[in-house]
Amino acid sequence: MSDVKKIKVEICLGTTCYVLGSFRLSSLEEQLPPNLKDRVEVVGCACLEVCHDRNYGNAPFVRIGERIVDNATVEKVIEVLQEMVAAGGSNE
């Protein structure tokens, strides 16, 4: 499976996201279910710059591939990842 492109998960560590709990997502990598472990790459991000954009909900934000997830929690991120993998593991 190593040649499959991994889905990139970027956790925003900017001010707004951090004070609204993005640091709790630091345990995401350990909490990934077995079927996602090798499919996902979790990284930090200085700022996703969406907190001042009204098209999105509330911080904390996570970017999964190209998709922005608001009010992000470990459970919510895993849910989105499962949907993506089920839909063919596309990075889009």
Partner: peptide, 25 residues
């Protein structure tokens, strides 16, 4: 000092930012 600040410099100078998520804890 600042996420957007770092992003601007990163974009203009083409130098990536490396944020180690494992350091958070």
């Amino acid at each position: 000092s600042g996420g957007t600040t770092a992003n601007i410099v990163s974009r203009e100078l083409q130098r990536p930012i490396d944020v180690d998520m494992k350091l958070v804890m």
